[in-house]
Design a protein around this nucleic acid. Structure first.
Lengths: 338, 338
DNA sequence: ATGAAAGCGCTAACAT
DNA sequence: ATGTTAGCGCTTTCAT
C-alpha cells in the first residue's frame, strides 16, 4: 500500500485533543512546566510522545519574536583561526539553546555588509569574527541588532579581543631575558587592527625594557610573506624577530634557514597564534597563543547577554588572556648572531 | 528627546496603507512580480523602500512551510578539511538563497543524532559532512528530511564522495613508474569509511600493476600517528608509503628523517588531502588532492535538488574527481633503498 | 488586477 | 489550574 497523504507533523491541537485539554494548556505544559497541574502535565507529555509531537520553532519564533538564532559572520572559513572562533561560538550557542547561522563573507566588506543586512531579520544578534567593514558600517548594524565584534577594538560596540598587550610583552621579555638586545617586528597588513595592536605592544615593551625594537614590512600574513621578511631581515642587526602571525613566523624560519642561518642559534623567531603547523615545523615555533575557541565562546555569551537585555558592560573591550608557549625557535643569541 | 516606543519593523500592512492597496497585493508584488500591475508594483516598491520595509522571513516560513535553511553537521570544525567542506556548502547555499545552520557534533555519534533530531523541524534538509552515526541512524534521519552524506558511501541515501579509487590508483602508478616495487599503506582508523576506500583502492591498484602492497597500522590519523607509522615501517621492505591522510604523511616524513632516512631518496611518501602543511613541510608532500570545497558545494546543491523534489538520481554516490599533486616527497628508490 | 478573509502553529493576555 | 480568544506577518484561495 502507498502511504497516506504526506503526514502533516502533529501540532499542539493534536496533542490537546489526545490529552483532552485545551491547546493553550499544552503550550504551557512545555513552556512553563510550573504553571500546570503535574497530573495534567504528565498526561500531556504522554500524549505528545505517543503521537510524536515536536514544537514548531518557526511558529514559536513568529509568536514570540525570538528566533533563537545568532548570525556568525566569518571572512574566511578556510582559515583555521576563524574556524576555531566559529567552533567556540557554535558550542556556546548550542549550550544556550541557540542556533548559529554562518556566513562566509569572502574577505569582502561589501559582501559582508549585504550579508549582515540580509540576515538581520532572522537573528537575534550578530557576531562579527573578523570584520572587514568600516567602523561606521559596524555601528549601523549594531543599531539594528545586538552586535559583538571579535578581534577588533571599537567604541560604542561590544568587543572581545585577546590580550595582545600582554602577549607581546611576554614575547619581548622572553627574548630580552635570553639576551637579545635588538628585536624586529615583522609586520602584517596595515589594515589589520590586530597587527596594529601587536606592533604597538611590541614597541612599548621594547621601550620599557630598553631594547631596540625595529619594524619591518608590511608583508603578506602568509608563509610567503614570512619568507620575504627573512630576506628583509638580512640587512638588519636584529638577533630576534617577532612575526605578526604563525604562518609568517614559519615562513621566516624557513627563509632564514634557506639563507644559511640557524634558528634559534643565530636568529630567534617568535610568532602569534598557536596553530598546528607551528608545532610541526622544525624547530617548533615559540608563539603567543591566543585562545580562539574561548574568544568565540566569550563573544557569543556576551552577545546573548546583550540579546537578553544586559547593558553593554565596560566601556572598553573584553580581554581574553594570551600566553607565551615557549618551544624551540627561540633561545639565547649565539656567537655568530648580530 | 527619547525615542518613541521601540519601533516595530514595518509590515506589509504598513506598506499597503502607504501605497493605498491591500496587503495581499503587497505580498504579490514581492513574491510574484508578474501578477501585479507594473504601475502598482512600482508604487508599492517605492512605499516599501520609503518606510524601510523588509519581509519577515519567519512569517514567510510559517506560512509557506519553507524555512530556506539547511543544517550542516560537522564532527569537528577545527579540522581544516571540514571547515573547507562547510565553506563550499555555505557559499553554495547562499547562492541559492538558503541559510546554513552549522552544528559541531564533537566527534560523537550520540551528540550528532540528538543534534540532528533537534534541528530537523527548522530546516529543509541536512548535510552530513563527516558523520559518526550508524547507517541506520542516518537512514532514520533521511526518512524525515532530505539528507546528503559527504565522504561516505551508503545505500538508499544520496552521497558525495571523492574519487578515492582513481586518486589511490594515480598514487600507486606514480610510485610504480618511479621504480618502486614494494609499497606500504599506512592505515587510518578502521571505523573510517574513507580509510577503507583508500586501502581497497590502493590494494587493487597494486594488484593490477603487479606490485607488492602491504598494509601497516591502524594509526591515529594525526602527525603522531604518522610518526609512529615511520617506526613500524622500519621493519618492512617497502621503499614507498602511502598514508591515509596528509597529517600522517607529514608525521611519516618526520619520523623517517628522525630515523636517519632521506625522503624521498630512501623512502617515498605520498599522502591524501591537500592541506597547507603539506606544502610547507620539507620535502613538500606529494599528495592526492580531494577538492573539499567543491564537494561541499556539490553536496549542498544535490541536497537542494532533493528538497525541491528531485528524485535522488543514480543509485551510487556522486563522485568528485581527485588528482595527484606531485611535489618533493616522492621519487625513484635510491641505492640504499629497500 | 486587486481585495477580503482564512489559516500556518504557537503564545499570551484575559476570563473563569 | 485551565479554557477562550486574539494576534504574530505572511501567503493563498476565492471573489470581484
Amino acid at each position: 500500500m502507498a502511504d497516506q497523504h504526506p503526514p502533516r507533523p502533529p501540532t499542539i491541537y493534536d496533542v490537546a485533543q489526545a490529552a483532552g485539554v485545551a491547546p493553550s494548556t499544552v503550550s504551557r505544559a512545555f513552556a512553563r512546566p510550573g504553571r500546570v497541574n503535574s497530573q495534567t502535565a504528565e498526561r500531556i507529555r504522554a500524549a505528545a510522545t505517543a503521537i510524536g509531537y515536536r514544537a514548531n520553532p518557526v511558529a514559536q519564533a513568529l509568536s514570540t519574536a525570538r528566533t533563537r538564532m545568532i548570525a556568525v559572520l566569518v571572512s574566511d572559513l578556510s582559515n583555521p583561526l576563524y574556524a576555531e572562533l566559529l567552533r567556540g561560538a557554535q558550542v556556546a550557542a548550542s549550550a544556550a539553546g541557540y542556533g548559529v547561522l554562518v556566513e562566509d563573507t569572502r574577505e569582502d566588506a561589501a559582501t559582508e555588509r549585504e550579508t549582515a543586512e540580509r540576515i538581520l531579520p532572522l537573528v537575534e544578534g550578530v557576531l562579527l569574527t573578523s570584520s572587514r567593514m568600516s567602523d561606521s558600517a559596524i555601528r549601523s548594524i549594531a543599531k539594528q541588532r545586538p552586535v559583538v565584534v571579535l578581534n577588533r577594538g571599537l567604541t560604542d560596540v561590544s568587543c572581545v579581543v585577546a590580550d595582545e598587550q600582554r602577549g607581546a610583552r611576554r614575547a619581548v621579555e622572553h627574548l630580552g631575558e635570553a639576551g637579545h638586545r635588538d628585536l624586529a617586528y615583522a609586520s602584517g597588513p596595515d589594515a589589520s587592527w590586530t597587527n596594529g595592536a601587536r606592533w604597538r605592544a611590541f614597541s612599548d615593551a621594547c621601550h620599557e625594557l630598553e631594547l631596540t625594537g625595529r619594524r619591518i614590512g608590511p608583508f603578506e600574513p602568509t608563509f610567503a610573506g614570512g619568507f620575504e621578511a627573512a630576506l628583509a631581515l638580512a640587512g638588519a642587526r636584529s638577533t630576534a624577530v617577532v612575526a605578526f602571525n604563525a604562518l609568517m613566523a614559519v615562513g621566516l624560519i624557513r627563509g632564514l634557514q634557506q639563507a644559511g642561518l640557524v634558528v634559534p642559534d643565530q636568529v630567534s623567531v617568535v610568532g602569534f597564534d598557536d596553530v598546528l603547523i607551528g608545532q610541526i615545523v622544525s624547530p617548533a615555533l615559540t608563539t603567543v597563543s591566543t585562545p580562539m575557541q574561548s574568544m568565540g565562546a566569550t563573544g557569543l555569551r556576551n552577545l546573548l547577554g546583550l540579546v537578553n537585555g544586559a547593558r553593554s558592560r565596560s566601556p572598553g573591550p573584553v580581554v581574553v588572556p594570551a600566553r607565551l608557549v615557549i618551544r624551540d625557535s627561540s633561545g639565547p643569541p649565539g656567537a655568530q648572531g648580530g
